[in-house]
Amino acid sequence: MRRNVGTKVLGVLAAALLAFFIQGIARNSAVQWRVVGSYLFSGPILTGVLRTLLITAVAIVIAIVLGVLLANMRLSRNRVLQAVNGIYVWFFRSIPLLVLLIIAYNFSLLYAHLSLGVPFGPAFVSFTTTHVFTALTAAIITFGLQQAAYTSEVIRAAIMSVPPGQVEAAETLGMTYWGAMRRIVLPQAARVALPPVANETINLCKSTALVAFISVPDLLYSVQEVYSANFKVLPLLVVATIWYTVIVSVMSLAQWWLERSMRIDRRVATIAVTAEVLR
């Protein structure tokens, strides 16, 4: 009873604090809400939002595809494949993302010209790397490769959660290993991997703000460009905050919806509970 009262008091206090906080921001003249409003849907900012989404989406797709391959290497009985996976994961987990990003960016400067042709012979095609391997591509590849090192472990655990007998059953039905992987294992593993992978996607989305360091005009960089011209730093950071919050909220909603639609055994659970109650 007393604990109940204490909880209520704490709850009221917390609500009051939150209200003060919100009011503080809302009333704060430094935020300049009118400026926030005028930039929230402006062209450069929206382009930045799209670019942030693009980097996140392509990188996570790379991470998942590569992650499935890496997970299968790790699970294979082939020692060489296991070693390749081990070195990959070790390497990409050891290096800070920002360092990797700057290296990838400088890669394009180091190898200014990529040539296709006979080694040491005449080049058939020659083009400047900085056009092909732009900062944006460098960023996407970097995020994809590094994320794959983490996502592959999640996928490996998810694959291991599918009873191996089902793969054997598929093989006795004439399926190849990869056929069984695609039709039998991955659909079931996806359900297990979804929550952690969604979590990683959200994290990745926020990490993409690092691309500002290599001048990729994502959400944060676009905001910085504007405020370095008009010095309205705080309002524009609020614009960025609002957009990041919206993006992450939409992702969380998508996760919730996906999890719900994937859970075919929810119906089964209901039946089991009903049976238990009736008994």
């Binding site: 009873p163 007998g165 089902q166 054997e168 059953a169 598929a170 006795t172 039905l173 039998i184 659909p187 079931q188 359900r191 075919i264």
Partner: peptide, 12 residues
């Protein structure tokens, strides 16, 4: 064809 002790049906 093969029939297993543990059935091994595809659960999904």
């Amino acid at each position: 064809g093969m029939v297993f002790q543990q059935f091994n049906l595809f659960d999904h």
